[in-house]
Amino acid sequence: MNELVIMKDQQAVTTSLQVAEVFGKNHRDVLRTIDDLKDVRNFTQMFSDGIEPDSYGRDRRIYYMNRDGFTLLAMGFTGKKALDFKLKYIEAFNNMEEAIKEERIQLPSDPMKVLELIFEANKNTDKKVERIDKDVKYLKDNQRIDSAKYSYISKQVSKKVYEYIDMHGLTLTAPQRSKLFKDISRGINEVTGVKTRSQLRQKDFDIADEFIDNWQPSTATVQIIKQMNNVADGQTTLGA
């Protein structure tokens, strides 16, 4: 069940898209089911609207839900997958209760032994804090960039392309300009390891910004634009 859970705003949540995939349902049907729950008390405490890009980078509506929202939604499903979920849910609670019982200890009467336990507990706490800090950094770095940074990157891409056009005194058609935009976008995706710009993570921001600042179109892109513009053979630049 762990693959269903993600971190969002320091809370463990899952999405309607993940639920649809795991339970073998159409995402539109899952959205419709959640929409029908809007009159339920505390709906907004269990569900929140969100946007996530599809495989083509287009925005699509999803719901985020916490554990209560997930339980309310999934308990209404029928079939083998729903039954498996219920059994795993019960098993998870049983295991947690058993672990709590096993961790209960009896403090020794010897003060020195008590001190040893305290020192050991502090040492373990420091290790846990260090591990948590690393986990938080990882989660923060791998979050999608916020809308302000995404907008900044988009503006820098447009600015850089038109700076290149002006610098070389070019007069390009819309299809030719499109080649330049595709070239710089492809480069951003390659250096950051994403498929579409909408998938950029927080840790990718500086990398993308530096790439845009140093971008020059590839030889292949320049050659294609020249061919579209009927530039004379032997000319190696787009400028006159």
Results as ranks from 00 to 15, higher is better:
Met46His: 08
Leu73Trp: 05
Met65Arg: 07
Asn94Ile: 10
Tyr63Lys: 09
Phe77Ile: 08
Glu52Ile: 14
Lys80Thr: 15
Arg67Thr: 09
Val191Pro: 01
Arg60Lys: 15
Gly169Gln: 13
Ala208Tyr: 06
Val13Phe: 03
Gln235Ser: 07
Asp133Arg: 12
Glu103Met: 12
Asp209Gln: 07
Trp215Lys: 05
Pro53Trp: 07
Thr15Cys: 06
Leu72Thr: 10
Asp49His: 06
Leu170Tyr: 04
Val13Glu: 04
Gly57Gln: 13
Ile100Cys: 05
Ala174Thr: 15
Pro108Asp: 11
Thr171Ala: 12
Arg41Pro: 02
Leu107Ser: 11
Ile105Lys: 14
Thr44Val: 13
Asn189Asp: 02
Leu72Gln: 12
Val161Gly: 03
Tyr64His: 15
Ile212Trp: 11
Ser158Met: 12
Ala174Arg: 14
Arg28Ala: 12
Leu73Gly: 12
Glu102Tyr: 04
Gln45Thr: 09
Ser109Leu: 13
Arg186Lys: 15
Phe119Gly: 02
Ile212Asn: 07
Thr14Asp: 03
Ile184His: 09
Ser158Val: 14
Leu139Pro: 00
Lys195Tyr: 07
Asp49Gly: 02
Arg131Met: 12
Ile207Gln: 02
Ala208Trp: 01
Ala240Ile: 04
Ser48Ala: 15
Asp206Ser: 06
Leu200Asp: 04
Thr71Asp: 09
Asp166Ser: 13
Asp29Lys: 05
Met65Ile: 07
Arg197Ser: 10
Val161Ala: 12
Val129Ile: 15
Pro108Leu: 11
Phe205Tyr: 15
